[in-house]
Amino acid sequence: MPDYFHGYAVVGLVAVVGVLFVAVAFTAGRLLRPVAPTPEKLLVYECGIDPVGEGWAHTQIRYYLYSFLYVIFAVDAIFLFPWAAVFAADGFGGVTLAEMFLFLGFLAAGLFYAWRKGVLTWT
């Protein structure tokens, strides 16, 4: 029975050491940093521009489209790694190759659609 819990003990020990490391780093930072608050330092900082007016701002929809396209291709990249591992296995080469071409075809169709709609132009 002790061998069974040895793996969990190692993981628990690493977690405790990690938490202690973070706690020591934050405590050392708090103790060693200079404390000299000024009104300028207490202002909200956003991209080097002083805050003026309300906190509400309009965001154009094209930024959401770019983030959506990023998510699509991030999923593609995540799918490629297990595919490469299965592709190397015996007996799965042809099937996984066809599945990957089908998957990449769907992604290419989506990219072509986005390009035809003008989503990929930065104006």
Rank of each mutant, 00 (worst) to 15 (best):
F101A: 04
E99Y: 12
F103V: 05
W83F: 10
L111Q: 07
T96Y: 13
A89K: 05
F92L: 12
L104P: 00
F92A: 14
A109I: 02
G105E: 11
F92E: 05
G91R: 00
W83H: 13
L104N: 08
E99W: 13
L102T: 14
W83S: 02
L102C: 04
F92D: 04
A109V: 03
A109D: 07
L104M: 06
Y113H: 03
L107H: 05
A98Y: 10
F106S: 02
V95Q: 13
F112S: 08
L97Y: 12
L97M: 14
F106G: 08
A108M: 12
A109Q: 05
L97F: 15
V95D: 06
V95L: 15
A84N: 09
G110A: 09
G94R: 15
F112T: 12
M100Y: 10
F92P: 03
T96P: 04
G105I: 04
A109H: 04
A109P: 00
G93V: 01
L111S: 07
A98I: 13
G110L: 09
L97A: 14
V86P: 00
W83V: 09
F87E: 02
A88T: 05
M100E: 03
A98R: 13
A109F: 07
L102P: 01
L107K: 02
L111G: 11
A109M: 05
A108W: 08
A84T: 08
F103M: 06
G94T: 12
G110R: 03
G93M: 01
T96G: 10
F106Q: 13
F103E: 01
L97S: 12
V95Y: 09
T96N: 13
V95W: 11
A85E: 09
A98E: 05
F106A: 02
V95T: 11
A88D: 05
F92N: 15
A98G: 05
A109R: 02
V95E: 12
T96C: 04
A89F: 02
A88S: 14
D90H: 07
A85W: 13
